[in-house]
C-alpha cells in the first residue's frame, strides 16, 4: 500500500530536511500510517507534535479526561482558558495547525470502554496515562493483530517509554569504507589518501519484541534476575511504583493532594518491590519528592525518543530501541534496556 503513495512537490518542499535524512521510501510509509494516541497530557502533546510534523496519514486523539491546572506545566496544545474541557477536543485545533496535511480527529470516549476491534483501525497505538491493566490489555490486542504498540508516561522528573513491535522487519544503513580502485589509480599518494570514503549499504534486519506483561512480571529474585538487576535502570522500579499508585487509586499523583500522595507512594514502595522479588528498600523513597505534574523538558526528552521510535516503526527504517527507554531527570540518565526476555 505504502508503495502506491506518491509524495507531491509541496510535500517534498515541506519535508525536505527529513527526506534528506531517512529517504523517500520512509517518508512514503509514514504518509500511509494511521496512529491512535491515547492520553493528551504533556507527554501526549509532545508525541502528537513530533509525529504530525513528520507527516503521518492520520492521528486520532483519544482522551476522556478534562484539562486541569497541572496541564500548564507541559500541555502546550490546550489553550490556558480550557481548564475543565475535554483534553482531546481542546488539543485538536493546535494539532491540526501543526500540519494541515494530516487528518486529525478527537475522540472523547474512555479507552477502557473501547471494544477490541476499535484498535484494528490503526497501524500504531501509543498509550499514555493508562493503568497497567489497561496497557496489558491493549498490548495483547495489538500483538494479536500485528499492530505496533507503544506505551509511555512522565511523572515529574521521571519518564519512560515501552515498545512492542512484535516481529519487526526494518532496513538499516551500514557504512563500509569504499576502496576506490579505478578512479584513484592515477592519483599521487597524497591525493589518494583523501579519496577514501564511506559507502552506505542498506541491510534488511528483523527483531522480535516481548509483551509488556513479561517485563512487569519479571521475577528479580531469581539468580538470573539478580544478575540482570545490577544493570537495570532504577527508574524502571520507580515507574512501577507510580503505575501501582494509579492502579490502586484510579488516578495519578496530583499536586493538589501533594502531601498525602507522597505518603501513599512511600507506603506503596516496599510492597511493589517485594512482589517482584526485590528488597523492600531497593529504591529510595526520595523519588516521591520529584514525581508530580509533568515537567516540560522531561516530556520533550521522552516524547522525542518515543516520537522517533514511532517514526522508525512505521517507516521500517533503522534499528528500534528494544524495548524500554528510561529518563531520570534527577541523575540525568537516559537509558535503553531490554527487559522481560
Amino acid at each position: 500500500m505504502a508503495e502506491q503513495i506518491t509524495i507531491t512537490e509541496d510535500e517534498a518542499a515541506l519535508y525536505d530536511r527529513q527526506i534528506r535524512l531517512w529517504g523517500l521510501d520512509a517518508q512514503r510509509r509514514l504518509r500511509a500510517s494511521r496512529v491512535l494516541l491515547i492520553g493528551l497530557r504533556g507527554l501526549g502533546a509532545e508525541v502528537a507534535k513530533n509525529i504530525v510534523l513528520a507527516g503521518i496519514k492520520s492521528l486520532t486523539l483519544l482522551d476522556h479526561t478534562v484539562v486541569t491546572e497541572e496541564d500548564a506545566c507541559s500541555q502546550f496544545l490546550v489553550p490556558r482558558q480550557d481548564v475543565g474541557k475535554n483534553r482531546a477536543e481542546s488539543s485538536l485545533h493546535r494539532v491540526q495547525q501543526l500540519n494541515p496535511m494530516v487528518d486529525v480527529q478527537a475522540d472523547i470516549s474512555n479507552v477502557g470502554d473501547k471494544p477490541d476491534d476499535y484498535f484494528l483501525n490503526f497501524d500504531v497505538v501509543c498509550a499514555t496515562c493508562c493503568t497497567l491493566t489497561l496497557l496489558h490489555r491493549i498490548d495483547e490486542i495489538c500483538a494479536a493483530h500485528k499492530i505496533k504498540f507503544f506505551a509511555g508516561d512522565v511523572f515529574g522528573f521521571y519518564g519512560y517509554m515501552f515498545a512492542d513491535l512484535g516481529f519487526h522487519e526494518y532496513a538499516e544503513d551500514v557504512q563500509k569504507t569504499k576502496a576506490k580502485e579505478n578512479i584513484g589509480e592515477g592519483e599521487p599518494a597524497t591525493k589518494k589518501a583523501k579519496i577514501e570514503e564511506l559507502e552506505t549499504h542498506v541491510v534488511k534486519k528483523s527483531a522480535t519484541f516481548t509483551r509488556l506483561s513479561n517485563a512487569f512480571e519479571f521475577d528479580w529474585g531469581t539468580t538470573e534476575g539478580a544478575k540482570k538487576l545490577k544493570r537495570t535502570p532504577n527508574t524502571f522500579f520507580i515507574i512501577q511504583v507510580l503505575l501501582q499508585f494509579m492502579e490502586k487509586f484510579s488516578r495519578r499523583p496530583e499536586v493538589k493532594t501533594l502531601l498525602e500522595d507522597r505518603q501513599a507512594l512511600e507506603e506503596l514502595t516496599p510492597g511493589v518491590l517485594e512482589k517482584i522479588g526485590l528488597k523492600s528498600d531497593y529504591i529510595s523513597p526520595e523519588f516521591a519528592r520529584s514525581c508530580f505534574a509533568e515537567l516540560s523538558p522531561v516530556c520533550a526528552i521522552v516524547g522525542g525518543v518515543l516520537g522517533q521510535e514511532i517514526i522508525k516503526a512505521v517507516s521500517q527504517k533503522d534499528r528500534p530501541h528494544r524495548n524500554f527507554f528510561f529518563f531520570n531527570g534527577i541523575d540525568g540518565s537516559g537509558l535503553v534496556d531490554q527487559i522481560g526476555d
Binding site: Q18, L53, I301, G303, G304, Q308
Partner: peptide, 19 residues
C-alpha cells in the same frame, strides 16, 4: 551543506538544555 534536521532530535536537545 544541508544538515538534515528533524523535530524529535531538536526536542530532546532542547529538553536537555533546560535540565
Amino acid at each position: 551543506n544541508i544538515i538534515p534536521a528533524i523535530a524529535t532530535t531538536n526536542a530532546i536537545i532542547a529538553g536537555l538544555i533546560v535540565m
